[in-house]
């Protein structure tokens, strides 16, 4: 097994290779404005670092968000186009699940990332592998109380949620994303894995849809919001 994983759903642009046992190479650059420029070179970099070719890759996994849309799409588009040329399946893993997994926590906690517009994308976990609620999008002061909060959203709104609750990690790591995906892929028959990768019609743009997500699913974006667009009324008059 050789899993290529990438995530562009947060300011971190990250790529990694995982052989089913361990992370072979990983690249992480934090730059919220340059996902489109940084990702392809990062993939080249991790491949070169372990002397691997894309032909050796058996599955491609992208963080499916939720996350600011422009960056998010770069990772998912890259994964699905690469998968097409290599002839393997592309999968999506909820970015918040990958952050949770990387924390290694055994007790309940929240993951929160920046959703812009003074909101956070968040989910509640029982432990590092178990999502209990979410992903959702809300104002930081609406997060459930008490539990520790990991992810960049915790740091950004430390004053609102209480500085004592802020914990690491801040960003997702593609290494953790790859490890999580590898763990799930190893437990699946090839037929079931292929079924999971098949992209159903439509997008995940509501919390209701998002709640049904399996950890490993099709490489499609979790938006949680519908596009902002107003249906116009009558044309504005130009004469007063």
């Amino acid at each position: 097994m050789l899993v290529l994983a990438l995530d562009t759903a947060t300011p971190a642009v990250t790529a990694a290779l995982h052989d089913g046992d361990r992370v072979l190479a990983e690249s992480t650059t934090v730059d919220a404005r340059r996902h489109g420029e940084l990702l392809a070179p990062a993939i080249e970099h991790v491949l070169r670092e372990c002397d691997a070719s894309l032909r050796d890759v058996t599955a491609i996994v992208a963080g499916s968000g939720p996350g600011p849309y422009t960056g998010l799409r770069v990772g998912l588009m890259t994964a699905s186009a690469l998968a097409g040329t290599v002839g393997v399946h592309a999968y999506g893993v909820c970015t918040l699940d990958a952050i949770a997994y990387a924390s290694g926590r055994g007790e309940p906690f929240l993951v929160a990332t920046d959703a812009r517009r003074k909101e956070v994308f968040w989910a509640r976990y029982g432990d590092a592998r178990t999502r209990l609620d979410g992903p959702r999008v809300d104002r930081p002061h609406d997060l459930p109380g008490e539990l520790p909060v990991i992810g960049a959203g915790a740091r950004m709104y430390a004053e609102t949620i209480g500085p004592g609750r802020v914990a690491d990690p801040e960003y997702p790591s593609a290494g953790a994303l790859a490890a999580l995906a590898a763990e799930h892929l190893a437990a699946l028959t090839p037929e079931r894995a292929a079924e999971l990768a098949r992209v159903p019609e439509g997008r995940i743009d509501s919390v209701e849809q998002a709640r049904e997500l399996a950890v490993l699913g099709p490489a499609r974006p979790i938006y949680l919001r519908r596009p902002d667009a107003q249906i116009p009324g009558a044309p504005k008059k130009v004469t007063a």
Binding site: G36, L39, A40, I43, E44, L54, Y69, T70, R73, V74, M77, T78, A79, A81, L82, G84, T85, V86
Partner: peptide, 19 residues
């Protein structure tokens, strides 16, 4: 459109890299 262009550019890079 910036966001629209970005999807195509990401796809093209992946196709070029993959091929």
């Amino acid at each position: 459109l910036a966001g629209a262009l970005l999807v195509g550019v990401a796809a093209a890079k992946a196709y070029a890299l993959g091929l």
